[in-house]
């Protein structure tokens, strides 16, 4: 997948931000996510899936271990429900306080060919950005994430410092992305959103990397284990690339097979869409949808 993003841009993300503190915080989260985090090192970011007992995805989050505390960034739409799952599941004798940080911490995602220069401009030199490593810069943290179509640098910072930080970005000639532009960029970079994956199984979304076979039971584990040993993936989350504009919804391919578009965006004659297709329809590498031809690639979460 090519990276056609150009220039330097930023987007202020809407997220549910939760801080967990106390000696049992890691255990409380580890029991309910599909991804093993119990032995993740400090200053490390890890993406996790929350699934229901049928193994279907209910939320996606990023966990940042910082100073023996855990910062959980999860979807805005499922934030309260995910928090309730965590707090209701805390045992009477566990030390884990759950604190809502939506008003305290903001997230800005940066697109650039040279992340190092903005870090230097922020006044921090001699720091190498490593994938998924949580780097602390004063009151801010930075995490570089990689996706099939490119990299994103996420900056988390106190909300009361947001305007100062945006001034630094704009002085460095970063431009703010509109919601539509961000949607286009995230499709180009191949970042699935909850709207694309919710209600599907992780293997259907190319998210096997977020399933840990060695962590024992968690909600959905029986189903995931059965799929691993005996299952056959019938449908698959894919990226469509084409020139025609298309909207979200349920369609039929020219051969009559179903196609469910969950996200789509067009810009400068290029259109991207995230779609759920039957595996048999992907093999040729292209599909005809709504009268137009589209290149089709399976999405894989790195």
């Amino acid at each position: 997948m090519s990276n056609n993003t150009s220039g330097e841009e930023y987007y202020v993300r809407s997220q549910s931000v939760t801080l967990l503190q106390g000696s049992d915080s890691t255990n409380v989260i580890d029991r309910v996510v599909s991804t093993r985090i119990i032995d993740s090192p400090d200053s490390h970011a890890k993406d996790v899936l929350f699934c229901d007992y049928n193994g279907r995805i209910t939320d996606i989050g990023s966990i940042y271990k910082i100073q023996e505390k855990i910062l959980l960034l999860s979807s805005e739409e499922m934030g309260d429900k995910t928090r309730k799952t965590l707090i209701d599941g805390k045992s009477w004798d566990e030390q884990c306080d759950l604190i809502i940080a939506d008003e305290a911490i903001g997230r800005v995602s940066l697109i650039s060919a040279d992340f190092q220069s903005i870090i230097t401009r922020m006044g921090f030199e001699g720091i190498d950005l490593e994938r998924n490593r949580v780097m602390e810069f004063g009151d801010m943290i930075a995490v570089k994430s990689e996706f099939p179509g490119g990299s994103i640098l996420d900056i988390l910072l106190p909300r009361n410092q947001m305007s100062d930080f945006i001034s630094i970005l704009e002085d460095a000639e970063y431009s703010e992305m509109s919601e539509d532009r961000w949607n286009f960029v995230r499709l180009e970079v191949c970042i699935p959103s909850l709207v694309d994956i919710r209600g599907n199984l992780p293997n259907e979304c190319g998210m096997i990397n977020l399933i840990s076979d060695n962590k024992g039971c968690y909600p959905g584990q029986e189903i995931h284990a059965r799929l691993e040993s005996r299952g056959r993936t019938v449908k698959r989350l894919c990226l469509l690339t084409g020139e025609a504009a298309i909207g979200p919804g349920k369609y039929r391919l020219s051969n009559g097979s179903p196609a469910h578009i969950t996200s789509c965006e067009s810009s400068d004659g290029i259109s991207y869409a995230i779609v759920i297709l039957r595996v048999d329809d992907i093999e040729s590498g292209s599909v005809n949808l709504d009268g137009a031809n589209w290149k089709v690639e399976e999405l894989t979460y790195l």
């Binding site: 801080l19 505390k69 309730k84 209701d88 306080d97 604190i99 809502i100 911490i105 009151d139 009361n160």
Partner: peptide
């Protein structure tokens, strides 16, 4: 102070159960 020590954090959330 660090990112985890500023303003805007809620009090610890309490589980409301029957």
């Amino acid at each position: 102070m660090g990112i985890l020590g500023g303003e805007g954090f809620s009090l610890p959330v309490v589980s409301e159960t029957e």
